[in-house]
Simulated assay, not measured.
Amino acid sequence: MTRIHLPGILAMATIVVASNILVQFLFGQWLTWGAFTYPFAFLVTDVMNRVYGAGPARKVVFVGFIVGVICSLIGTQIMGEFGPLVTLRIAIGSGLAFLTAQMLDVSIFSALRQGAWWRAPLASTLVGSAVDTTIFFSIAFSGALTWIEPGNDVSWAGEMLPLLGTGPVAPLWVSLAVADWMVKLSLALLALVPFRIIVNRLMAGQQSHS
């Protein structure tokens, strides 16, 4: 890891910290504000991968993971209206989802690196974000995994409701997960624009210094 990777490290750390704060604030019925900042972690990972390679991208991911763990530890010590802001299940789900999804993103991006410029970032982000959402919401809220933290009552998340208010009946946490992934899907498409711009500028900067 060198000084030229510092902007990527700082960007990832900022996104992780901001997302951990904004997840405490609701946006509508199914989302939190954190849903709109967290997906940009995939943008940072993909830019680092395209410009510097898979190795530096994985190191930036690891930094993000460590920052996330620190945020979770802090959150477990802050008491909210219904208990700690971060429960053990949320902490485990968040950390495992981030690390797994981001590392998968790096691997898929690297496999598709030689294709059209948009294919690698789009495919890696779509797959990574789907895995991220599945792991986090399952571990954090699924009734089948209450054994992870028996003292944490997540029965509210298992309330059977129409999916997103209009679809087939499903546990509430499934609606939360679907809404979260839909945001990630939308931002994955929108992020192709800044991805292209940032990569071109960084590549041009590298060439001018070579």
Results as ranks from 00 to 15, higher is better:
38 Y>G: 00
194 P>Q: 02
105 D>R: 02
168 P>L: 15
111 A>K: 12
82 F>Y: 14
24 Q>R: 13
90 I>W: 13
43 L>P: 06
175 S>M: 04
96 L>W: 03
116 A>Q: 06
178 V>P: 07
95 G>K: 03
53 G>H: 02
194 P>A: 04
176 L>G: 03
70 I>M: 09
72 S>E: 05
178 V>N: 06
54 A>I: 09
197 I>E: 01
89 R>K: 12
136 F>D: 05
83 G>D: 10
188 A>P: 08
20 N>F: 06
60 V>Y: 06
161 L>S: 09
36 F>N: 03
192 L>E: 03
74 I>D: 11
133 T>A: 09
5 H>G: 00
31 L>R: 04
26 L>R: 15
166 T>W: 15
120 A>Q: 02
145 L>I: 08
50 R>S: 07
117 W>Q: 03
8 G>W: 01
126 L>W: 10
7 P>E: 00
136 F>P: 06
195 F>E: 10
57 A>M: 02
35 A>E: 10
31 L>E: 06
146 T>H: 13
3 R>Q: 13
210 S>Q: 12
135 I>Q: 12
14 T>V: 07
139 I>Y: 04
155 S>G: 13
4 I>K: 15
196 R>W: 12
115 G>D: 03
86 V>M: 14
165 G>W: 12
137 F>K: 11
97 A>D: 02
35 A>I: 08
35 A>R: 10
89 R>S: 10
62 F>Y: 08
170 A>V: 15
